[in-house]
């Protein structure tokens, strides 16, 4: 009975939020609509972060790398190929997936905090690269004057902020729906199983490495597609869009949303990014300080363990630095007999 009521309430809230999102551009000015569109794109990146962090148990700080790859590919290459948004999306998703595929060897054997470290390094290096590769990305000056796109063949170009927002909303909703659908199948079950007990899954004959590689590439594709949406939403790109701060904000959003929940990650990230944008407007000059304090406070206020297992695979403290294999340790139960 109670469970049904909660479920109905949840559905009601979801419907209300969706309706609010559809109607939002008519309630706010153009500038806010553009900001909202950008926030939604970031929300989609957060979904990819949640896919890796919460569902697959690979905490990541580097999803800005495929995000940037998708955005710049969409802006540079997409503009030459076609002006159809769906083509841009596909091109960007392929670019994001390709970058993720290149970095698969780096993460496929790592778990826990090691993944955080490696992905952070990859994401930061990607930003440095974007800032220095002037001939293609425009360097730190950014890439302006990006042509407008039309959503599908034969449709008018997205000329207003409202149209661009609605396009972003539709794409985000479709992709999030797709991710949720896939997670309801056997694939989602296997991913969660890999997170919760990798050794057991491996023992039962599943190829966990392949699975990790697959989810990493898929998350890269989602983040890449989000990059294309960013291009449409703000029609300007600069390395600042993909900085370390963005990764951290996304992670905060994902953690607030309950790391294993894809929908929660979207909502959490949207709230966090909107809060950041509001802070920068309301407290010019003080925003980083307040934002930093918000990070610290959130960590203390978040509900502690108990209601979800830690979203990290493997041991809590991976024995980094040890060169000794576990097999050399004396068995605690005196297995010599």
């Amino acid at each position: 009975m109670r469970e049904q009521a909660v479920r109905a309430l949840r559905r009601g809230v979801a419907a209300a939020v969706l309706a609010g999102l559809v109607l939002a551009p008519w309630a706010v000015d153009d500038y806010t609509a553009a900001l909202l569109a950008r926030t939604l794109a970031l929300g989609l990146v957060a979904v990819s972060v949640a896919l890796l962090t919460g569902v697959a148990g690979l905490p990541t700080l580097g999803q800005t790398a495929p995000y940037a790859a998708g955005a710049y590919t969409s802006a540079v290459l997409g503009g030459q190929v076609s002006d159809v948004g769906v083509v841009h999306l596909a091109v960007a998703a392929v670019a994001g997936a390709a970058l993720a595929a290149v970095t698969v060897p780096l993460v496929v054997h790592a778990r826990g905090v090691v993944v955080l470290m490696i992905t952070l390094a990859v994401g930061e290096l990607a930003v440095v690269l974007v800032g220095r590769w002037r001939s293609v990305t425009g360097g730190t000056d950014g890439l302006a004057g990006i042509a407008q796109v039309r959503p599908l063949w034969g449709m008018p170009v997205l000329a207003t902020d409202r149209a661009r927002y609605l396009y972003t909303l539709v794409v985000v909703a479709a992709l999030v729906g797709l991710v949720l659908l896939v997670l309801r199948t056997r694939v989602g079950l296997l991913l969660r199983a890999g997170r919760d007990d990798e050794a057991r899954l491996r023992a039962s004959g599943h190829r966990v490495s392949l699975q990790v590689a697959g989810v990493h590439v898929a998350a890269g594709a989602v983040a890449g597609a989000a990059g294309s949406l960013l291009v449409v939403a703000q029609q300007y790109l600069s390395p600042a869009d993909f900085g370390f701060e963005t990764s951290a904000l996304l992670l905060l959003g994902v953690v607030i949303g309950g790391a294993a929940s894809v929908g929660g990650a979207l909502v959490g990230a949207v709230l966090v990014v909107a809060g950041r944008d509001w802070l920068f407007g309301a407290l010019p000059g003080h925003a980083p300080l307040v934002l930093g304090l918000a990070f610290v406070v959130t960590v203390y206020l978040l509900p502690g363990g108990g209601h979800r297992p830690p979203p990290v695979r493997g041991r809590l403290l991976p024995d980094v630095g040890t060169r000794r294999a576990a097999g050399e340790r004396p068995a605690p139960t005196g297995a010599r007999a």
């Binding site: 962090t53 905490p59 700080l61 826990g112 905090v113 955080l116 701060e245 951290a248 992670l251 905060l252 953690v255 790391a259 003080h286 980083p288 300080l289 934002l291 930093g292 304090l293 918000a294 990070f295 610290v296 959130t298 960590v299 203390y300 978040l302 502690g304 363990g305 830690p310 979203p311 990290v312």
Partner: peptide
């Protein structure tokens, strides 16, 4: 001192806390 048991319960909260401190320290 700030990385208490509560704050450091997962790698994620650790990363968030230390990043928040980096933001605060940098802005100060």
């Amino acid at each position: 001192g700030l990385l208490t048991r509560v704050a450091a319960r997962t790698h994620l909260t650790q990363a968030l806390l230390t990043f928040g401190l980096a933001l605060v320290g940098g802005s100060l």
